[in-house]
Amino acid sequence: MSAALKLDDVAIRFGGVQAVGGVSFSIKEGDFVGLIGPNGAGKTTLIKIIAGLLRPDKGSVQLSGVDVTADGTAARVRRGLALTHQIVRPFREMTVLDNVALGAGYRRTSSPFRALMHLDRRLEYERAAEIIAQVGLAGTEKKLAGSLPLGQMKRLEVARALAVEPCVILLDEPLAGLNHAEASKQVEAIAAVHAKGITVVLVEHNLEEVMRICRRLIVLNNGLVIGDGEPREVMADPDVHEAYVGGGMASHAEA
């Protein structure tokens, strides 16, 4: 069985900063991996490379055994990848239902020509309503996405990611900025995603939650992997400890 996601020697440089410096790992199907590290470690950058939002200077990305390094984001999504943005990006002028339905109709929008041939949205609206209920947003369907409070927008991001029926889902700080009650609802939604057999890669600062729900941790520091394995063992590693203390793990309020 091939890995759900495989990175081989991925690196990228911004001017003087080596944001990611040769990262390799492989994640098996159905796993729940926490990607952690201090601020500026390169987590978001790595997620963007996996998602095709950034082009790496070198290295390759494979999804279910297929090399997607040359593909754009849309093509990767069609191969079973989904992601949520660290900074939420709903279509503010559309309703919550439309936001999710558009994802649910990803087969219809695969080419402009096919999209032109289809009018009916009923099926997608039904699926979207189900997903919206799953992430605990039932009742908000008719609201404009831009009018939601942050906690709900973050769940909308998860709902949209689910709508494209992914095999692998990348979540970049889905809990950041949420209060306690909102965060626990969001964690429930994420756990439900994993329960469906979807491979989850979670970037998160809230170590308590990470330790609770992840089965494997990959620790990044200065763009390099400095720890990888079972969560408790990884956190016990002195190098990891050092990086965190040095990098200031208290700074949750990251942009």
């Binding site: 939002l53 984001t73 999504v77 990803y106 695969s110 949209r160």
Partner: peptide, 12 residues
């Protein structure tokens, strides 16, 4: 509205 967000829904 947002090309990047559209791409994450598989829209080219």
């Amino acid at each position: 509205e947002d090309e990047g967000a559209a791409a994450t829904l598989g829209i080219n």
